[in-house]
Design a binder for these strands. Structure first.
Lengths: 107, 107
DNA sequence: TTCCTATATCGTCGATAGACGATTAATGTC
DNA sequence: GACATTAATCGTCTATCGACGATATAGGAA
């Protein structure tokens, strides 16, 4: 048991493994600068075709596609098929949820 | 060049590689549930000794130490030496900066 | 049908993450 | 001095990430 100076009592912090996991997963999705930029671009123009994202990032098409996949998997990005193109856009609800979780967990 | 339906014009999104990187780095620090929980615990009791964190997480001491190191490296956690113990606490300023960055970049 | 375009997926590679046990370093205590 | 306690570091292992080129897939256009 630890003592006085810095933490006199051990506050029982609620175990919230699901929330910890959800927040961590969302953070992970944004843990790469390319993915942050993707979100910024999509927000700025309310949806964007993949080709333009490839140009904007200056990475290989397969690499950008993979970043988009990760964002979709986290629920942060939606894809609307307009064959042969695809329109990607930010899922605003998920973004809000993310910020809510953050505010909730981290004050 | 892409056309009409989903993104009529290509909005020139400001290149902000430093901000993208900073936000991504902070997100990465929180991209593991154990680290989210560490922050939650530290916030709940305004500082905490390592031993208690080890008990709370149920992971090996070396593993917890590594998670703490990552949080310190991101600037999210400060350590105050109280030999032989160490008191860890959340750097509130950095936390605020994180939320500010998020709000700024992601609306 | 035969191309062309746009996106997704596959396979590969090197780098990094995450876990652990063992060890080290720094103190306080006996 | 010998010992116990606490945290940091080291070494090792497996798993995952991030990049790329090559290929597959699905439509539209000629």
């Amino acid at each position: 048991m630890s003592d006085q100076v810095c933490c006199p009592t051990i506050v029982p912090v609620l175990d919230q493994p699901l929330l910890d996991q959800e927040l961590a997963t969302l953070c992970k999705a944004l843990s790469h600068p390319a993915r942050v930029k993707l979100i910024r671009i999509m927000l700025a123009q309310s949806g964007c075709v993949g080709q333009d994202l490839v140009s904007a990032l200056g990475l290989a098409q397969s690499t950008v596609s993979e970043h988009i996949r990760i964002l979709k998997e986290a629920g942060l990005v939606d894809a609307e098929n307009q064959r042969p193109k695809v329109c990607y856009s930010v899922n605003e609800a998920k973004l809000k949820r993310y910020q809510h979780l953050l505010a909730d967990a981290l004050g």
